[in-house]
């Protein structure tokens, strides 16, 4: 597998803060791989995601190296990074209502995105947008093109955001808690959708979450973060079945499990 992203010794310090928010972060992401970044609040996982997008707030200092698809992100001028965003590098945020513009219809936002980056006619962009809405499971996509974000449920909005994140076939999608604001049944549907779409597109994904269940079901590999450092990383089975650090064990133990002794769990014990 070809390596798409190599992060080496990355550190970020926000303006006015003495200590770095994250430091000494190194990771690799292969093409098509889904990497989960887990940690509790304040562990630096969102900062990591923002630095990959080069979207840190003004005054934040980045050091180390982020090599994405052959291009150095750290220290690169905005005009060099900007063309990457949305096209080769895209993002899905936690709260879809804030990611969408409240004063433009879903359709106009989608067609604007498509026309900004692809040389296609208005009519073609319209057709492609409808096609994408259908692919992310939105019923009556033609009618939804005229809807505004406030007229749709949280789950529907997140489907729109996913469509916009994937519409330009990015190499890497950075999803920061994409389902944390959703009800469990909606989350289950969105996770299924995301998994299928990512697999179909061959994109890689960096999935930032605090939910170990989401990681277990979605990711190929996992990086555990604590207090700005990466404490452990490895293939998903290794992290869940033979965690190397006390912190990972503690995280796994703290995860409340509804299925502590469900038939499925028992069955699995026997199989293993």
């Amino acid at each position: 597998m070809t390596t798409l992203l190599t992060v080496d010794g990355l550190a970020v310090r926000y303006a006015g803060s003495r200590r770095p928010s994250i430091s000494n972060i190194s990771l690799q992401l292969a093409e098509g791989e889904v990497l989960g970044v887990v940690g509790e609040s304040g562990s630096g996982k969102t900062t990591l995601g923002l630095s990959l997008l080069s979207l840190l707030p003004a005054g934040a200092e980045m050091s180390g190296s982020i090599l994405f698809d052959g291009q150095q992100i750290v220290g690169a001028p905005e005009r060099a990074v900007r063309p990457l965003r949305g096209t080769r590098l895209s993002t899905i945020v936690q709260n879809p209502a804030t990611a969408l513009n409240p004063s433009f219809s879903i359709g106009s936002q989608m067609t604007a995105l498509l026309r900004r980056h692809k040389k296609i006619s208005r009519a073609d962009a319209h057709t492609l947008a409808i096609d994408w809405l259908a692919r992310v499971g939105i019923g009556e996509p033609e009618n939804r093109m005229r809807s505004y974000a406030h007229q749709l449920s949280g789950g529907m909005n997140q489907r729109v955001v996913i469509a916009m994140a994937l519409a330009l076939s990015p190499r890497l999608v950075i999803a920061d808690e994409p389902t944390s604001a959703l009800d469990v049944t909606v989350q289950a549907a969105i996770l299924g959708l995301l998994k299928d779409l990512i697999a179909d597109s061959g994109s890689s994904m960096l999935l930032i979450t605090h939910d170990l269940g989401v990681v277990a079901q979605m990711c190929d590999s996992v990086a555990v973060m604590k207090d700005g450092a990466m404490t452990e990383s490895g293939p998903v089975r290794q992290i869940f079945h033979s965690p190397q650090t006390a912190y990972t064990r503690q995280l796994l133990a703290a995860q409340p499990s509804h299925a502590a002794s469900s038939p499925a769990a028992l069955q699995n014990e026997v199989v293993r």
Binding site: V184, Q187, G213, V215, F240, A265, N268, R272
Partner: peptide, 11 residues
């Protein structure tokens, strides 16, 4: 109950 992703990649 079925909607909760189990925190075990083998489940």
């Amino acid at each position: 109950l079925s909607a909760i992703p189990p925190a075990d990649p083998d489940l």
